[in-house]
Write a protein that binds this DNA or RNA. Structure first.
Lengths: 232, 232
DNA sequence: TAGATTGTTAATCGATTAACAATC
DNA sequence: TAGATTGTTAATCGATTAACAATC
């Protein structure tokens, strides 16, 4: 939704590692890059050194032409007649996504979902560290979850600042979610991932992504309903 | 992705509640319908009986023209000069999504995330009932979670059949996820929502949606990185 | 060189948005 | 009737895909 930041400098420049190649990556492409990265890391783990766009596209579940088009926005990292080096391409995708430095994440709302997220082991290897947990409930504040002490909501700003967090995850119910989003914005995060089932308003300079599990199920329900022409 | 089921019959037919109006709702529209429904139910709860496309679009975070266009695929449920009746429109959206009958959901993988999903109270009011929990781990099987006894993986088919479940949620780690997906397909579900961080392959007649939390964070990281032109 | 596969162009397709006639 | 707002058309915009020249 938000346009990626503009950069100065002129040439569009094919070639290797040129920074300007990163500007203007379409949003639809950005959304697919993590999937490509996952597939590349899996291939690496299998000991595959080189992969064709056909094979990688198959693994990622996209059209090979789309994959090549997407990768062309990053630069020119394949070899004609050969394919892409899995390790090298993975690294380039990480550079473009900005994953070479680990980002610090604060989770707000330590209920069942916040708990699950705090314990999730997959963040570290994908570029993120959970550095703070915040909750409103006096019964939860002060307890230790996944090795971190839960801090009161009033300290959110301090937690973000002290740990230099740039991303906030909202795992609260719908009602307090806007208040939490406002507080995260005030604290200076640049991105918010929310699981609360309501629309949130954030300023244009903050990136917001929403995951609503019930909405996902409702989308599945639509296809289930109209699949056979049986009707509801 | 999947085209909605085709129906017989000819006229495109404006008008009220005509069933043919539901065919050919674009996927992009279907994905937004749950958001509209959420906003409409919130307005209802606030006692608002009528809403304009401008106000509803504002609440849902979309362009008013897009909202009207989306709703036009469902039929003609507004009144010119007046707006949309919140309760009536909500009901029509539910009809289109097929939410008038509650759908039954089975969760596979009762770790932290599966636990959180099983306890989530928001499913019922949005059209879903969690009817079965399945796990592989002998230490988990047999325990009671959210009022349901966790069943062994071998019984997945029986659990789906006995409860007439049509949707499966995969909350396992990446490695077993494809095996679980295959088993869910064999059991006859028509839709799968997976949280496992890997690409899954399912037959064309099964609808698949993937939520990968780390991928969501990586998308936020991209915008964070290139926002200011500062670079990584 | 012959075969393979990328990177890119151009065509197609679908989604978004502005504008406005229809109509409450 | 006058004002408001929908439903729809048409224009724009962006994303996907096929095709192929470039080149390893």
């Amino acid at each position: 939704m938000d346009a990626p930041g503009r950069r100065t400098g002129g040439r569009r420049a094919a070639g290797h590692g040129d920074e300007r190649a990163r500007v203007g990556v379409p949003q639809a492409t950005v959304v697919r890059l993590p999937t490509y990265l996952r597939a590349l890391r899996a291939l690496e783990a299998e000991g595959v050194a080189t992969v064709s766009s056909e094979e990688l596209a198959e693994r990622a579940g996209v059209n090979p032409a789309q994959l090549r088009k997407d990768l062309s926005f990053l630069g020119s990292y394949g070899r004609r007649g050969v394919g892409y080096g899995t390790a090298h391409l993975a690294e380039q995708v990480e550079v473009v996504l900005g994953l070479q430095t680990q980002r610090r994440v604060v989770i707000v709302g330590i209920g069942n979902l916040g708990h699950a997220l705090a314990h999730y082991g997959g963040f570290a290897e994908r570029g993120f560290a959970v550095v703070g947990l915040v909750d409103d409930d006096p019964a939860v504040v002060g307890t230790t979850v996944a090795g971190l002490q839960v801090r009161p909501f009033e300290e959110l700003g301090a937690v973000v600042a002290a740990n230099d967090a740039t991303i906030g995850i909202i795992a609260t119910p719908a009602v307090p979610a806007q208040r939490v989003a406002d507080a995260l914005v005030d604290a200076g995060v640049t991105g918010i991932l929310t699981f609360a089932p309501r629309a949130l308003r954030v300023p244009a300079h903050v990136d917001l992504r929403t995951v609503d599990v019930a909405s996902e199920l409702q989308i599945l329900a639509f296809h289930d309903t109209w699949r056979s022409g049986a009707g509801a």
